[in-house]
Amino acid sequence: MGRGRLPRATFGMSDAVAIRLTVNGARVERLVAPRLNLVDFLRDELGLTGTHWSCEHGACGACTVLIDGALARGCLVFAIQLDGANVETIEGLTESGALAEVQAAFHARNAVQCGFCSAGMLLAADALLRRNPEPSREQIRAALSGNYCRCTGYHAIVDAVADAARERARRKP
């Protein structure tokens, strides 16, 4: 849409700033424009396309990542703010096995259809289980209430998170 007047500053490489951060355990150094948001940084600079953007205003959860271990909306952070930070995405968390039980439960319950919300759902589910290993269905629904899924109707996702909780409890020594 026509969104008003031209901003005074225009972006050239001279505005770019060097950042160093850890992404999925690897040290990354890049020059970034201040306005580059984290999702575009992950997708375009690092090829980590498992983090999706959908609403770009923090409402849908498709871009969920971990920043310094905490759940965050990737679209509401600029890459330049993350100098020194530790970012984890679905790719890294899959490779490390951190999400294995949750992913297996989502698969078994078919708690995934188009897959576009899945990364965010898995990360939100895992964050819940880390702070509350035995959540009720209501607590699961509440914890996922910031992640939009148009396909599943949520029921299977709730089932899957409950299954993953049981599986984690079973595996605990």
């Binding site: 969104r3 008003g4 007047r5 901003p7 005074r8 500053a9 201040p34 306005r35 948001n37 770009e56 205003h57 923090g58 909306r73 679209c75 509401l76 952070v77 600029f78 703010q81």
Partner: peptide
């Protein structure tokens, strides 16, 4: 033209929608 950014959870949506067009973002984190 200056805007402060703390958590950014309200500011960044407004920036992404170009409702605001600051010249300088001052990150106070």
């Amino acid at each position: 033209g200056a805007r402060l950014i703390a958590g950014g959870q309200s500011l960044v949506p407004a920036l992404n929608m170009r409702l605001l067009e600051p010249t300088l973002l001052i990150d106070i984190n």
